[in-house]
């Protein structure tokens, strides 16, 4: 396996697992995950909706699938 492909598999797996295990964290760290960057409230914007969590989990699963495909190919 080429080094770049191996790196893609490793990083893709890690990112996929992160998205599946902690979708709120992954979402917050992405630019799209803070949908309103200027939304400062006195008590913060810590919550992430259920739909967004599931969307991130789907992305995570896709990352794992592609990583698995690259590993198998």
């Amino acid at each position: 396996m080429e080094p770049r492909t191996a790196l893609a598999v490793v990083l893709g797996t890690l990112l996929g697992l992160c998205c599946l295990a902690r979708p709120a964290v992954a979402l917050r760290l992405s630019v799209v995950g803070v949908p309103v960057p200027d939304r400062h409230g006195p008590d913060g914007d810590g919550g992430v909706s259920t739909r967004m969590r599931w969307l991130v989990r789907v992305v995570g699963a896709a990352c794992l699938l592609v990583s698995g495909y690259l590993l198998a190919a």
Partner: peptide, 16 residues
């Protein structure tokens, strides 16, 4: 928090 305004509002909550 499945749909509607409350889902959007969820992004405002402090507590995850």
């Amino acid at each position: 928090q499945s749909d509607g305004v409350n889902e959007q509002v969820g992004a405002l909550c402090i507590f995850d």
